[in-house]
Design a protein around this nucleic acid. Structure first.
Length: 198
DNA sequence: CCGCCGATCTTT
DNA sequence: AAGATCGGCGGG
């Protein structure tokens, strides 16, 4: 596993809009693979029309209503998996979507897991690409990252971006679903960021 | 580089 | 019927 200090429960117990920018520059690790996060989004539970948890707990979203630091994995557009870290106090259903990262360890394994990527900058530049790169699918839903279940966790290696995080609206939300809320954070100009800011 | 479209299936 | 997406294709 790449070198770094694993993040603890209290890191994730804060509002997802505070955790999200803090995660930029930190590592998502799965066994020998690691990505440095360059793009994330915050989702704020029942108060947020863009959140899957907006309509209250269901079998799909119940993980978000549980303790922070666990993984919420959902199936997107009939063929992709996307991963979030549950954030905030129990019952608030906050989450941070991991949208893009730069490979920093296990490059061979990551390339093997992303045969469709034509360039290295496409390896994890998107929420479903990031999951493919790390080998995360629905079977990892609900695992506790604070205990590194299944070999997955979030960590810091002390590296910090030399630019302030930029903000924008979240990607892919229709006007009725909070399309105007500026809850996306990314490292400006970073080649591994998934989409152009709006 | 950009825009369009099809794939594929869960949730509403 | 839409959705927290991706990759291939065509055009500029």
């Amino acid at each position: 596993m790449a070198r770094g200090r694993r993040l603890g429960r209290s890191f994730f117990a804060r509002d997802p809009r505070v955790v999200a920018p803090d995660l930029l520059g930190m590592l998502v690790r799965h066994d020998d693979r690691a990505l440095r996060l360059v793009e994330v989004e915050a989702y704020c539970g029942v108060d947020d029309p863009g959140s899957h948890a907006h309509r209250g707990p269901t079998p799909r979203t119940e993980v978000m209503f549980g303790p922070p630091g666990h993984l919420y994995v959902y199936f997107s557009y009939g063929m992709h998996w996307c991963a979030n870290v549950v954030c905030g106090p129990v019952g608030r259903a906050g989450a941070v979507l991991l949208r893009a990262g730069e490979p920093v360890a296990g490059l061979d394994a990551i390339r093997a897991a992303r045969p469709a990527a034509r360039r290295d900058r496409d390896l994890a530049s998107g929420p479903a690409r990031l999951c493919q790169a790390l080998g995360i699918d629905g079977g990892f839903g609900g695992i506790d990252l604070v205990r590194a279940e299944r070999g997955i966790d979030l960590a810091t290696d002390g590296w910090a971006p030399d630019v302030a995080p930029a903000t924008s609206v979240r990607v892919g939300l229709s006007p009725a679903r909070g399309a105007d809320l500026p809850w996306r954070w990314y490292l400006p100009g970073h080649p591994h960021v998934s989409a152009r800011p709006r």
